[in-house]
Amino acid sequence: MSQPDVPLVRVRGASLSYRGRRVVEGVDCVLDAGETLALLGPNGAGKSSLMRLVAGRLPPESGTVRIAGADPYRERAIRGGIGWVPQDIALYPRLSVAENLDVFAQLSGLTRRERPALVRAALDLADIADVARRPVGLLSGGYQRRVNIAASLMARPRLVLLDEPTQGVDLAARAAIHAVLARLRAEGAAILIASHDFAEVERLADRIAVMAGGRIVQEGRLSDLLARLHQGAPEHEVALVDLPDAAATAALRGAGFTPVDTGLTWRATHRGGPEGAALLSALRGHGVPVGEIRIRAPGVETLYRAALDPAPVDRGHPRIVARSPS
């Protein structure tokens, strides 16, 4: 049992190398019961490695990892109170959902008498009782991910670690998984989630930690970080109807815009300069295939990009100007 006012998870100066390369470097972080911390960062930033340290799957080369004051790598009982949900589906495809959960309950050390009630509770928590008797291999990807989460909960863990839990699922499955995580948090579980989905993070996280090169480069309470960001200029988002050619790309970059996805959306933070219809007209006048311009409050994606690129987010006046009518 953790002491009062002591975080459930405390990582201090943790470092780890893999195949001669440092993948976690001097990381400090804490996580309280009933709190969700989201890890953000590019591939190879160290998110999954940090989660393995917290899960007790690996020991840090230096520094410490403590769960309720104990070392999860050395103490098996502590690891038993951690629910680990890997990115890949780790289930038995020929067994039914309920049979899978029973197997994982048995692997968690639960007795035959305890298991039926805990299986029913996990089915209810993950809202998958309707498929309890179906083989996992016949389920959709979204249902399989919900079963994957349910399997990690058989020992009623106080800490749940999830690596990209909604990767490759549709919107309905994503909403269902988010509902499961909200129930876990409401029941007092601490949740550590690694995600590339900014909307997911904004919806679920109490705090975020942005990682790069094995280090945490920004960390804080999400509401506080967003509040400071919203004190600045709003973002202009340009939605294109076609990919821009070289001239249109130059015009967009000259106006301070950068691409944010497939190249059909460009975003900038401007203080001053042409607004709305004037900016739309100016960009079209330079051959940019603009469908619409949206004005939006900066969100998690802006925080993330600013953390990885320390250059100021506000780009000042756009260098493109509206042309006077002839």
Results as ranks from 00 to 15, higher is better:
3 Q>T: 10
4 P>H: 06
7 P>E: 00
7 P>I: 02
14 A>M: 06
21 R>A: 13
27 V>W: 11
31 L>I: 08
36 T>H: 06
37 L>S: 03
37 L>N: 05
49 S>R: 01
50 L>W: 01
51 M>S: 00
57 R>K: 08
57 R>I: 15
60 P>F: 08
64 T>W: 04
70 A>S: 09
71 D>G: 05
74 R>P: 01
75 E>W: 04
76 R>N: 08
84 W>H: 01
84 W>M: 03
89 I>F: 03
93 P>E: 04
96 S>G: 15
96 S>Y: 09
103 V>L: 13
106 Q>Y: 11
110 L>Q: 11
111 T>R: 13
113 R>T: 13
114 E>N: 10
114 E>P: 15
115 R>Q: 12
117 A>V: 12
122 A>G: 07
127 D>S: 09
128 I>D: 03
133 R>E: 13
136 V>E: 05
140 S>E: 05
161 L>T: 01
166 T>V: 08
170 D>S: 02
170 D>G: 03
175 A>E: 14
175 A>F: 11
177 I>E: 01
177 I>R: 00
182 A>T: 12
183 R>S: 10
185 R>A: 08
185 R>T: 06
185 R>P: 10
186 A>D: 13
188 G>H: 03
188 G>P: 02
197 D>C: 02
199 A>M: 02
200 E>N: 02
212 A>S: 13
213 G>H: 04
218 Q>K: 14
218 Q>R: 15
225 L>C: 09
226 L>Y: 06
226 L>V: 12
228 R>G: 15
230 H>P: 13
236 H>I: 14
244 P>G: 10
245 D>M: 15
246 A>F: 10
254 G>V: 07
255 A>F: 06
256 G>H: 06
258 T>L: 09
259 P>K: 01
267 R>N: 03
267 R>P: 05
272 G>W: 02
275 E>T: 14
277 A>Q: 12
277 A>W: 08
277 A>R: 13
277 A>L: 13
279 L>P: 09
281 S>W: 08
283 L>I: 10
293 I>W: 14
297 A>Q: 14
304 Y>F: 15
305 R>Q: 14
306 A>M: 05
306 A>H: 11
308 L>C: 14
309 D>K: 07
319 R>N: 12
322 A>Q: 10
323 R>I: 09
324 S>M: 12
